[in-house]
Simulated scan of single mutants.
Amino acid sequence: MSAGYAVLDQRSVVAVTGEDRKPFLQGLVSNDVLRVTPERAAYALFLTPQGKFLHDFTMVDSDGDPAAILPAILMDAETERRADLLRRLKMYKLRSRIALEDRADRLLVAVAFGGDVPAALGLPAEAGAARPFGGGVAFIDPRLPALGARLFLPADGLAALEAAGLTRRDAADFDRLRLGLGVPDGTRDLIPEKSIPLESRMDALNAISWDKGCYMGQELTARTKYRALIKKKLFPVAFDGPAPEAGTPVTLDGKEAGEIRSSRDGAGLALLRLEDVQRAAEGGLPFQAGTATLKPQEPEWESATKG
Rank of each mutant, 00 (worst) to 15 (best):
A15S: 09
V16P: 01
K22M: 06
F24K: 01
V33C: 04
V36E: 02
A44I: 03
L47H: 01
T48N: 08
F53I: 05
L54W: 04
M59W: 09
V60D: 01
S62M: 09
G64P: 05
A68L: 09
L70S: 12
R82T: 04
R88H: 14
L89M: 08
L94F: 15
L94E: 04
I98C: 02
E101A: 14
A110H: 03
V111N: 00
V111L: 00
A119R: 14
L121E: 00
G128S: 11
A129H: 04
A138P: 01
I140C: 07
L147Q: 10
A149E: 06
A159N: 09
A160P: 00
A172H: 02
D175A: 12
T187H: 13
L190N: 02
I191F: 00
E193M: 11
L198P: 00
A204N: 04
N206E: 08
G213W: 03
M216T: 07
M216H: 00
Y226W: 14
L234M: 09
L234Y: 06
A238V: 15
G247Y: 09
D253C: 10
I260W: 03
D265A: 12
L272K: 00
R273E: 13
L274E: 14
L274A: 12
A280Q: 04
G283N: 12
L285P: 03
L285T: 10
L285K: 14
L285V: 05
F287P: 05
K295I: 08
Q297G: 14
Q297H: 15
W301K: 05
